[in-house]
Write a protein that binds this DNA or RNA. Structure first.
Lengths: 232, 232
DNA sequence: AGCGTATGACGAACATGTTCGTTCCGTATG
DNA sequence: CATACGGAACGAACATGTTCGTCATACGCT
């Protein structure tokens, strides 16, 4: 029943002194299994340790903290991003890659939120980064701009996943409904512009907003060069 | 020594039956005091409850959870944002307002991280939103674009604060150094574009990157209209 | 072969967020 | 005036992250 990829003797603790050593990858694998079966909420140190028939403290030899572990898990998940997908112009292929990235993050909004603060820095994330740089280069964007542009693009895609990612449909969607309610009731004499724009603030499906934001970013990057030292 | 703005009898618990009732604002005030004196790390339910001479469970009548409380605290802090600052063109004033916003968030990166997932939706946040909409309108940007644009701008500013905000200089700066190390050691045959761009990815001070990103966004918003139904 | 040391596994401990059932108080109601 | 009711405060409990000190094991050195 319990998933045990790297430990062999679940029977007794002190029975088998030659217990296979823990591994960072083994811990991540166990975390992925639990994530798939029980959701991120159950991916806790104690739960993983139990699956590996050990104590939570033992994991800290290979994992700095929960954030580190989750970052590792996220990078594994990023292997599902289709970096070579899309067709047509470089812009369309760039959009396809970022859409695929957002789609993966959509599945686990909590991980998306985490990746906003601590970048994964794993092989899959680096692969995505490299692909984006290649596409921007194909679009004729100078390296200096592309280097800062990918940061903007990834930050935007991640932010989109965080904002429009719904953890449990059962929950009442705190952040969205809270702000929506405030906007709906807003006093036009105090915040005239919010009242005027109104529902536009929250309008549009996640997809249309995503495409629009992407267009804004790419267009902006194309028109904002820092290499000629024009404006910095 | 302990800060007690809304509770009067710290002596004994059952001595004074007429203990003043707790208040949401009182809780937030206590949280702000602890934040100022001991940092966000100590702004815990139990710590606040102790300052108010009660139990942690009592706070949950007025506060949904820690995130809700922190959001409230953040909105209070946003009162320090200079929404009317800056001079010159609307772009420069817009940049000044967002810079002020980022500056406030810089002081408390943890709160910035939180505001990335759950929007504050308090009066100060709404004031900032309203001001940004006014500036975009002054720039001749259609309401439909401005409504989505503010989201982009605020998300960018918040993300900047999260990424370049250093919690404790004593800590070894996990996310930055981790990614930096990976980039420095990256294999040019596997990730050629990362290797080529190299240090450019992490170059520039936070300020120059912020200004560049802001230019990208504003320029992009100016050139990407969704109203004429041209491209959506 | 015998020994010492470093590495890692482990249990216990502490602080935290959150929930549950209970108790208490003020107030409306008869 | 007595009573019932509802909201709010409370204590205890549970799960979690993280750290500390201890101890066993395996490997290298003499």
């Amino acid at each position: 029943m319990t998933f045990e990829p790297h430990r062999a003797e679940p029977i007794s603790r002190r029975e088998r002194p030659a217990k296979p050593a823990l591994t960072r990858s083994g811990i991540v694998d166990a975390a992925l299994a639990i994530l798939a079966q029980e959701g991120l909420g159950k991916v806790t140190m104690r739960r993983i340790a139990a699956a590996l028939d050990t104590g939570a403290a033992s994991l800290y030899v290979y994992v700095r903290n929960t954030e580190d572990l989750h970052a590792q898990v996220l990078d594994s998940l990023l292997g599902a991003v289709n970096v070579t997908g899309g067709s047509g112009s470089w812009r369309e292929r760039l959009a396809a890659v970022l859409a695929s990235y957002t789609e993966v993050l959509f599945t686990h909004p909590d991980l998306a939120r985490m990746s906003m603060s601590t970048h994964p820095s794993g092989p899959n994330y680096l692969g995505l980064l490299d692909r984006l740089l290649a596409l921007l280069r194909e679009g004729g964007i100078p390296d200096a701009d592309a280097a800062w542009g990918v940061d903007l693009l990834l930050s935007f895609a991640t932010g989109t996943a965080v904002e429009h990612g719904h953890e449990d449909p059962g929950k009442d969607g705190d952040d969205f409904s809270a702000l929506a309610e405030q906007i709906a009731v807003v006093d036009a004499s105090v915040f005239p512009h919010i009242a005027r724009v109104g529902g536009e603030l929250l309008s549009g499906t996640g997809d249309t907003r995503f495409r629009w934001g992407l267009d804004v970013l790419i267009t902006g990057i194309l028109h904002t060069n820092r290499t000629p030292s024009d404006g910095i």
